[in-house]
């Protein structure tokens, strides 16, 4: 074996880190995949073995945050580092909305993506973090197009529809993804004159609104989150246009996490093949019990957090 070049071909200029292309490009690599919430290194290994494309390291899954109440914050650095050590797939972690110091801490720990997340208790009721100030890319939640574009304007390199985390109920995920897709479709039909008013209505910068109207999609990867509990749920979100799914409480709050995790991965890849989804859905044991979102008090709806 030889590692010497017969013709010396060397790149010349200085490499640039943290560019928009490098941040957004990272999310492109996750497409078609499942990102799983994990609270221990052992769970992270189960997720990796099941075929997860990344894990979200957090102290409590959303279902437990709901149950326990109180203020939910960034996880313990030891716990995050333990998970980074345990797996070779990318590791994401959550900071509170607007809590840019938690985000600084997460960046210093070397996480691969920061989720500025409504699942944690917001730290700022007006401002989200300036995500351009970071080398680490950010993913943010959105319930509609305007919210998604405001996050992108702040530097988010990936968007996930919010859904309602910790409920095991896919209804809000469907609502938010449909909302975003419908609003994009509507923009497609606008002429240039109408885009200025649309930008005002969406409370988002004109340039990004125009870009979305031209592309017919967000300029960053769009995943779905919040309520996916079964293989069919994951495939549903994919068929509705999500480029991948986040699964939080749905896996490790179920009867057989390893099996359910692998099944959701399969159904996410073959989201348009009902036979494979059927096979993946067999004998998974108990799904998480779930919560009916119409009985959920306004104050307990995480999707309302974020501005």
């Amino acid at each position: 074996m030889s590692s010497a070049l017969s013709h010396p071909v060397q790149s010349t200029d200085t490499p640039a880190t943290g560019t928009a292309r490098v941040k957004r490009g990272m999310a492109e690599q996750l497409k078609g995949g499942v990102i799983m919430d994990v609270v221990t290194p052992e769970q992270a290994k189960i997720a990796e073995d099941a075929g997860a494309v990344a894990v979200m390291a957090l102290e409590r899954v959303p279902a437990d945050i709901r149950k326990d109440g109180g203020v939910a914050r960034m996880s313990d650095p030891d716990m995050i580092e333990g998970i980074i050590e345990a797996v070779s797939i990318p590791v994401m972690a959550k900071s509170r909305i607007g809590h840019f110091v938690e985000a600084q801490v997460l960046q210093s720990l070397g996480v691969d993506y920061i989720d500025e997340s409504e699942v944690l208790t917001p730290a700022d009721e007006v401002n989200h973090a300036d995500k351009f100030a970071f080398t680490t890319p950010f993913v943010c939640g959105a319930t509609n197009l305007g919210e998604a574009l405001r996050r992108i304007a702040e530097g988010a390199a990936m968007i996930r529809s919010k859904g309602e985390a910790g409920t095991g109920n896919v209804v809000e995920a469907v609502r938010h993804l449909r909302q975003i897709k419908n609003e994009i479709a509507r923009l497609r039909g606008y002429d240039n004159n109408e885009l200025y008013a649309a930008a005002k209505e969406l409370r988002a910068p004109y340039e990004i609104v125009k870009e979305v109207a031209e592309l017919g999609k967000l300029p960053v990867v769009l995943f779905s989150a919040g309520g996916v509990a079964t293989p069919a749920d994951a495939a549903l979100m994919r068929q509705l246009g999500a480029e991948g799914v986040f699964v939080g409480s749905g896996i490790f709050k179920s009867g057989d996490p390893a099996k359910r995790a692998a099944a959701i991965v399969k159904a996410t890849t073959f989201y348009d093949d009902p036979k494979i989804i059927a096979d993946a859905s067999r004998n998974l044991g108990e799904a998480m019990v779930g919560i009916n979102c119409d009985t959920l008090p306004e104050a307990e709806r995480y999707a309302n957090r974020g501005w």
Binding site: Q10, S11, D13, P15, A16, S88, Y113
Partner: peptide, 22 residues
């Protein structure tokens, strides 16, 4: 060939640079 995974580092070390390709 023998490949080393994530050899250039984690996401914070991800970069863009010009490369001359034969």
């Amino acid at each position: 060939m023998i490949v080393r995974r994530n050899a250039f580092g984690r996401q914070n070390e991800s970069f863009e640079a010009k490369v001359d390709v034969l």
